[in-house]
């Protein structure tokens, strides 16, 4: 591998990693608070990119900067509302049910979103318009470094820092941490648990919506099943970092993104096998993930 190729691959890895990290945050926050693997989270990503597509092709005639901003905002709002509705309709009634029931419901929601998208937009992939400027900024050797990966990384890192501030320094953030530690005690302390959970879903989904723009533009198309693969990868990232841990999700996202990009360079057909293999190894060696805390059941 030449140094130039290495650098470009590295940047691509960072790009994919930041998208995974954005999605993984949604998984990890929801898991941290309601102990549910929200299988539908990857499909929120899909929904987000369809909203952007719909706004830019059907609602607006010209893809002006303003139109793009409105489209992305619409995607965020739509995903946030969708996330909250899903939680209230499908997950809230199962809060005290066995975890397996909630997990099966989440799988059902995921399938439902995919199929609804298929019924509305068809199952073929549709070209995704350029939302973010993707010009060559400079060149390493003969290889161009484009602006999309750089913007993706910067925006993602800024969002993650903001999220970190929010969770650790604000009142709602403190409520979120309290609910995830002990839902019952948080309720007794006057925290509105359901609203806090909704807020968590809202944040997770808004991050996924932002991620959807980056992801869809990177792959260049949208299709109903596009969310499951990055969704599962991001979930693996969350588990890798330690599910429930916000820094863990970011770390995991970058590790998985980087790993995938490099494996892809050498032997593309093995990408999925390597990523799943890594997941299995991590779970076996350190079930709580790299930055997660092991939990012990009280007897």
């Amino acid at each position: 591998m030449k140094p130039a190729t290495f650098l470009i691959t590295f940047i691509n890895g960072l790009q994919l990693g930041s998208v995974y990290a954005l999605i993984a945050l949604g998984y990890t926050m929801v898991y941290g608070i309601v102990k549910l693997i929200n299988f539908a989270h990857g499909d929120i990503l899909m929904v987000g990119s369809y909203v952007v597509l719909f706004m830019l092709t059907t609602v607006f005639a010209a893809q002006t900067l303003l139109a793009k901003i409105i489209a992305v905002a619409a995607a965020i709002i739509f995903c946030v509302v969708l996330g909250i509705v899903i939680d209230r309709v499908a997950y809230t009634p199962l809060r005290s049910a066995p975890r397996i029931s909630a997990l099966i419901t989440a799988i059902g929601v995921s399938l439902a979103l995919q199929i609804i998208a298929q019924l509305i937009f068809g199952s073929e992939q549709i070209k995704f318009p350029a939302v973010i400027i993707n010009e060559t900024i400079f060149k390493i050797g003969k290889k161009p470094v484009k602006s999309l990966p750089i913007i993706t990384c910067i925006v993602s890192v800024v969002l993650m820092l903001l999220l970190n501030l929010f969770v650790n320094k604000t009142k709602p953030g403190r409520a979120m941490r309290a609910v995830s530690e002990d839902m019952g005690a948080a309720k007794l302390m006057g925290i509105n648990v359901n609203n806090t959970i909704s807020l968590t879903f809202a944040i997770g989904c808004s991050l996924a919506a932002v991620g959807s723009v980056f992801y869809a533009q990177k792959v260049g198309y949208v299709k109903p099943l596009m969310g499951s693969l990055p969704g599962i990868k991001a979930f693996i990232a969350a588990v890798f970092g330690g599910i429930g841990s916000i820094p863990g999700a970011v770390l995991g996202g970058f590790v998985i993104g980087m790993l995938e990009t490099f494996v892809n360079y050498f032997a593309s057909e093995y990408v999925d096998a390597v990523v799943y293999g890594l997941l299995i190894v991590v779970l076996l060696v350190r079930p709580a993930g790299i930055l997660g805390k092991p939990m012990r059941e009280k007897v």
Binding site: I37, R99, L103, I232, D272, A273, Y276, L279, I280, L283
Partner: peptide, 28 residues
């Protein structure tokens, strides 16, 4: 043997991962 040491959710994910890997292996 390794996966069943893990509780509930994780087993689900490991088996999901297995389902995906086995397809890759069959084809490669």
């Amino acid at each position: 043997v390794p996966a069943l040491r893990l509780k509930g959710d994780y087993l689900a994910i490991v088996t999901l991962g297995f389902g995906e890997i086995i397809r890759v292996l069959i084809n490669t």
